[in-house]
Simulated scan of single mutants.
Amino acid sequence: MIYTGCHLSSSKGFEAMGKNALKLGADTFAFFTRNPRGGNAKAIDPDDAARFRKLAAEHHFGKLVAHAPYTLNPCAAKAEVRDFAFRAFQEDLERMEYIPGNYYNFHPGSHVGQGAEKGIELIAELLNQSLKEEQSTTVLLETMAGKGTEVGRSFEELRAILDRVELKEKMGVCLDTCHVWDGGYDIVDHLDEVLEEFNRVIGLKYLKAIHSNDSLNPLGAHKDRHARLGEGCIGLEAFQRIASHPKLQGLPFVMETPNDDAGWAKEIAMMRAFADAMPET
Score class of each variant (00 low, 15 high):
L229Y: 05
P258K: 03
S244F: 02
H226V: 05
A238M: 10
A227D: 02
P246M: 00
V254W: 03
H222E: 08
A221S: 14
T257S: 10
P258T: 06
G235I: 05
T257R: 02
G220F: 09
E237M: 13
R225M: 06
R228C: 13
T257E: 01
L236C: 03
G220L: 09
F239G: 09
Q249K: 10
F253Y: 00
A227P: 01
H222D: 03
K223T: 12
S244D: 08
G230Q: 12
K223D: 08
E256T: 11
I234A: 14
G232T: 13
H245I: 04
L236N: 10
P258G: 10
Q249R: 05
H222R: 15
T257Q: 07
P246A: 12
C233D: 12
H222T: 05
A227S: 10
H226Y: 01
R228S: 07
A238F: 09
G232M: 13
G235S: 07
I242D: 01
M255A: 13
G230E: 09
M255Q: 02
K223F: 08
H245G: 05
L219Q: 06
G235D: 11
P246G: 03
F253R: 00
A227V: 05
E237N: 15
K223L: 08
F253T: 10
Q240S: 15
G230S: 11
T257H: 01
I242L: 03
L248Q: 04
P252H: 02
L229G: 05
T257G: 05
G250V: 12
D224S: 12
K223S: 12
G235F: 05
R228K: 11
F239N: 09
G220K: 01
G230H: 12
E256Y: 06
P258A: 01
P246K: 01
D224V: 09
K247G: 06
L251V: 00
G250Y: 01
G232A: 08
S244I: 10
